[in-house]
Amino acid sequence: MAVRDYIRERFMPHIWCAGCGHGIVMNNLIRAIEVLGLKKNDIVMVSGIGCSARISGYLDFHTLHTLHGRALAFATGVKLGRPDLHIIVPMGDGDATAIGGNHFIHAARRNIDITAVIMNNHIYGMTGGQYSPLSVYGRMATTAPFGNIDQAFDIVGLAQSAGASFVARTTSYHATSMIKIFQKAITHKGFSVVEVLSQCPTYYGRKNRLGDAVEMMEFFKKNTTPLGSAAKEKNPDLIERGIFVQEDRPEYCAEYKKIIKKAMGEQ
């Protein structure tokens, strides 16, 4: 199938600004799904609120556009209702780690078979450029006019310590590896987290004089390095990308099936 076969053309044009990283992520998600050969009826996309969350509406799957931060809680209900379906949750940084932080760590802890794609552009885009829990220290935002004094979460570390059994990081620049990571995350049995460093040229870029979308993507290219590379040893400031965790651990729905067996046996 072509990319357009996955898109609801009736709902185009999309709302994203020119140069936004979310379109790249959506495109690569589609490609990953296409390569995997998944049926559209077998995919549920659940999202919260934010620019990134709009991905769900544009795609021709079962789509559930929910409340700010709550996508994973809704997704948990969908997954338990239909454990055979693939559940993909595109999220923004505020959505996943501020208002939705609690749901995020608990979904990870349960290791429920859901794929969370966190588009980290370090800012709240939809509301116009406020700082998020992933904004870099010292950066500017409309609510940090003198510079951000919050420390940012490390998504990979957070997901890992909360119990996610698949954790990866990539960037909007690295399309080929992003597609491969998405494929692995979607087929992984358990809670999978993919952090995608993405650009919001409109707010984060402009507020912090980071240049246009191309320059922001160049930044991802220059300042990231594959996991375990020698470059990281020389320059510890480089951000690593790749798969950090990929483990076989008890998955929640599978565990729940055992509970049903026990409960029925005990009757």
């Binding site: 559930l64 948990t76 338990l80 608990h106 409960a263």
Partner: peptide
């Protein structure tokens, strides 16, 4: 679970309410 249904204790009431909506969309009485 004795009748094959699904019970989950969520992280809070917000999540509980969201989860039943998700489950209802798959056709379950929630």
């Amino acid at each position: 679970p004795q009748k094959g249904g699904c019970f989950i204790q969520m992280e809070d009431e917000i999540a509980s309410m969201c989860a039943i909506i998700g489950a209802s969309l798959t056709g379950m009485k929630a």
